[in-house]
């Protein structure tokens, strides 16, 4: 799906997958921070956003 995302001109990093057990609190916070940082670096999305006027 990420590939199709990229194919239509979206940043593939906006879709991330991770496998985290409920016991892996550390991994969870790391992944969440990393995802947040990546998305922040990409900035607001300007494609595929429904605009109404």
């Amino acid at each position: 799906m990420a590939n199709l995302f990229e194919h239509i001109g979206m940043e593939k990093e906006r879709l991330q997958f991770s496998w985290i057990s409920s016991a892996e609190a550390g991994k969870f916070t790391n992944v969440a921070t990393e995802v947040a940082n990546t998305i922040e670096a990409l900035g607001p999305i300007d494609k595929f956003v429904k605009k109404t006027d």
Partner: peptide, 17 residues
């Protein structure tokens, strides 16, 4: 044909679609 689209930059891809 797919490769031709893959070679575009992201804005070109988006305007193509």
């Amino acid at each position: 044909d797919v490769k031709a689209v893959e070679a575009m930059d992201k804005d070109a891809k988006w305007s193509y679609f």
